[in-house]
Write a protein that binds this DNA or RNA. Structure first.
Lengths: 104, 104
DNA sequence: TCGTGACATCGCGATATTACGATTTAGCGC
DNA sequence: GCGCTAAATCGTAATATCGCGATGTCACGA
């Protein structure tokens, strides 16, 4: 369980430096607050469609937001059939919290 | 001692989402690692000139970096005579760490 | 295999950020 | 006052990000 590199820190901070992406990460704390879906949200994550609906952006924008969060390792994507499910990567988020005060 | 608003979180993350600004905040943890100056660095902060020299950027760029960090409340500026001294705002940094996991 | 729905990627214009040199503002010593 | 230095601000070109519609890819069901 290593620490986050400087590059990883920067890309995580960059990803969080946008109001909608920051909000999405907060929403994902309670996956069951989203509409029901075939797979349980608290296991496999929330379907992109539901994230898009709550964020009120186009499909492509929602997809790109999640790709940015994923590149920063802040979320994990699980694809099941046609659906992409996103859930928080609590490990990275915890490391980020630890990095503040230690590295930062 | 309130918490950070969403806007404050976003602007703090945005400010940290740049490798040089992130590095500067780390450097400021040990003000005495900079060249000596009239005022003690661990009391009043580090002179902009020394930050500029270590970051290896132009004077105007260094000034703007610090202004960005200051707008995000991550550093405090103390002007003494002609010199602007910058030190970490540990209070905001601590709140930011707490916000990760709570809000984020 | 053909159509449909879910998602990713492309291409684009609009906007924001970056980093710089030049200029301005202001403090200091003479 | 004058010159010198420190720092903020201005103006700029280059670059990156934002958000969208259009297109491409893939899974599913009829």
């Amino acid at each position: 369980m290593g620490e986050l590199s400087d590059d990883q820190l920067v890309s995580a901070f960059k990803a969080l430096g946008h109001p909608t992406r920051l909000a999405i990460l907060g929403w994902l704390k309670d996956g069951n607050s989203f509409p029901p879906q075939d797979q349980p949200a608290d296991e496999v994550g929330v379907c992109l469609k539901h994230i898009q609906a709550r964020a009120n952006v186009s499909q492509s924008t929602a997809s790109q937001f999640m790709a940015t969060l994923q590149r920063a390792d802040l979320v994990i994507c699980t694809r099941i059939g046609q659906f992409s499910h996103y859930r928080r990567n609590e490990q990275t988020i915890a490391k980020l919290g630890e990095a503040i005060g230690a590295d930062v």
